[in-house]
């Protein structure tokens, strides 16, 4: 049977891609961020997962407002990165796992999640950068990938409670799959930041740290909040912490936190990272 071996949550901003392209990992501004990753890279090297389910939010690369799914699951053999408007070098294609994708789609719909399946799906920095950060030595990560996209562009967004249930449903889909696979779940987004409005630049360290603690001590803690309350606490884009919550909910059984990092700021964002292992 397929097994979920752990979860990794991280922030994403386009500037990380530029920093990687310019080899700024040891630059004083970037070092506290990049230094969070080697322990996770080592864990991945030991565990060697076969598949990564990447839970992220699209920033207007694949989806426009003409058709905007709340939850979308990739079902392709390969996923391409593309120019998001800034001319940052694109990354090589990512290998998919169509069989497990369709298991997810079938199982999620049976579980009352009416998701959108995508046989073509461009993946933006929110999908590609975590993989580049986790496998920096590889042009393309050495495992198969499945994108799961959650809408954070246009309200209404799915609630924190709904995202938590999605994570639990992802766990049921994976752990009922007969293939012998090791699956890691990666959540990409947050933590507190706000790009737009007169409150731009808002960061809330206290809430971020409380949220990170909750993922270990009381994972459902954030489900008490409506999205409007999460925006108040974490900024308009801080609501991307829904990706972290979904990821944590997708980890079944006993879960142990192995590593974390938190640094303010990268770009306009409070950058967090956590590694969880399923025992």
């Amino acid at each position: 049977m397929a097994k979920i071996v752990g979860g990794i949550t991280t922030s994403h901003v386009p500037a990380i891609g530029r920093a990687i392209a310019q080899n700024l990992q040891q630059d004083p501004y970037w070092k506290p961020f990049f230094d969070g990753f080697p322990p996770v890279q080592k864990w991945l090297d030991e565990v060697k997962p076969d598949v990564a389910i990447v839970i992220y939010n699209d920033h207007g690369l694949n989806f426009f407002l003409d058709k905007l799914p709340t939850f979308a699951v990739g079902a392709a053999a390969q996923y391409h990165n593309a120019d998001e408007g800034w001319g940052i070098p694109t990354l090589p294609p990512f290998t998919g796992d169509a069989a497990l994708s369709w298991q997810l789609i079938n199982s999620l719909v049976a579980d009352e999640f009416d998701i959108t399946s995508c046989q073509e799906m461009l993946v933006d920095h929110a999908f590609s950068l975590p993989l580049k950060l986790l496998w920096p030595e590889h042009d393309s990560p050495p495992l198969r990938t499945i994108p799961v996209c959650i809408n954070t562009v246009q309200y209404p967004l799915p609630s924190a409670a709904r995202c938590y249930k999605l994570g639990e449903a992802i766990a049921r889909a994976v752990t009922s799959w007969p293939e012998e696979l090791k699956v890691v779940v990666i959540g990409s987004g947050g933590l507190s930041h706000q790009l737009d409005g007169e409150r731009a630049g808002f960061i809330n360290k206290a809430f971020d740290l409380q949220f990170m603690d909750s993922l270990t001590a009381a994972p459902k803690w954030a489900t008490q909040y409506r999205n409007e309350e999460l925006v108040e606490q974490t900024g308009t884009q801080g609501v991307e912490l829904l990706m972290w919550l979904t990821t944590r909910a997708a980890l079944p059984g006993e879960v142990v936190e192995l590593h974390r990092n938190y640094h303010i700021p990268i770009s306009n964002t409070a950058a967090g990272m956590m590694l969880f292992e399923c025992r």
Binding site: A15, H59, G60, W86, S267
Partner: peptide, 26 residues
């Protein structure tokens, strides 16, 4: 305008998110 799409316009102008933040906060 939605911030995710406006970010692409900002890119044309050579503005980063700190430029945008400064412009909005004065």
């Amino acid at each position: 305008g939605n911030v995710y799409y406006l970010a692409k316009f900002a890119g044309i102008l050579g503005l980063d998110v700190q430029d945008l933040g400064a412009a909005q906060t004065g």
